[in-house]
Design a protein around this nucleic acid. Sequence first.
DNA 1: TTATCTGCAAAGCCTTTGCACTTAG
DNA 2: CTAAGTGCAAAGGCTTTGCAGATAA
Lengths: 152, 152
Amino acid sequence: MRLIERALIILKEYIDNKGLKHSSKRLTIVESILTSKKHLTAEELYTKVKKTDKSIGIATVYRTIKLLADCGLVRELRFKDETPSYEPVLGQYHHGHLVCLKCGEIKEVSDTKTEELQSKLAKENGYDLQSYRLDLFGICPKCKAKDGARHE
Amino acid sequence: MRLIERALIILKEYIDNKGLKHSSKRLTIVESILTSKKHLTAEELYTKVKKTDKSIGIATVYRTIKLLADCGLVRELRFKDETPSYEPVLGQYHHGHLVCLKCGEIKEVSDTKTEELQSKLAKENGYDLQSYRLDLFGICPKCKAKDGARHE
DNA sequence: TTATCTGCAAAGCCTTTGCACTTAG
DNA sequence: CTAAGTGCAAAGGCTTTGCAGATAA
């Protein structure tokens, strides 16, 4: 399954970059959530994970979820009055652009929170989100400095 | 301020319909949150409310927030790893587009939360946001039904 | 060996709830 | 008068954290 392999590579790089270590328990949890077709709460993931490795504790599940969220492989969903749940973010291609109206500079930005809302927004309308385009138009810091000439 | 008056009418109707009662404490809390320019956490609202009526307890703040959420006058925001906060939903009008990749249908969607995040996103990068474009691409419910070819 | 990883259980945080009293209708 | 509203403090539910032992590099 290519998407998952790619995700595992991303994770590996993240772990290596941060000087963290690999572990089989973590891998079990990662695979459990990445192969899930639906979002899972921490408890549900914990239950699922235990089927593979009964010795895993829920603290590790939480720690792994946080790790995955940090490297962008999982995102947290919160529905009204519900326990938060987590869903894998696989081959989805997401980023937006920040465009300076003065100098035309274009900067790529990505933001999990924004994505999350977009996905939710689509879902609320019954759509399956496949991709999005987000363009933010404004004045970049450099031009502000030149222009405003009075604030930072 | 017309928007707030309208909100108070909505609330009154909600209360009357449900056979609930009016109370000055509740009104204080409602006014505090509806006139807030930014979203507030329960604690922040509690603090604000206390300036008007020191005898209000935080439990009532929570109860009132829930009431307002139920009648659609306030919505909950949850940013990653942050305490939930609440923002008034008044006459705001913001929108992006939901575009169906199959049939091309374009639907306007509006969402304050998304806009707020966009503004935040721009800010994080040092930009002053002036406008934005948000297009979400996916498959609309109708096309999903047709395609699946085995449902509908 | 050293820093990270883990399970466990305790601690934390935010929110809800039970109770007795107050108050609107 | 009756049912809803409220403050207070206790109870809950979900997450995080301290610790000591296990483990990757």
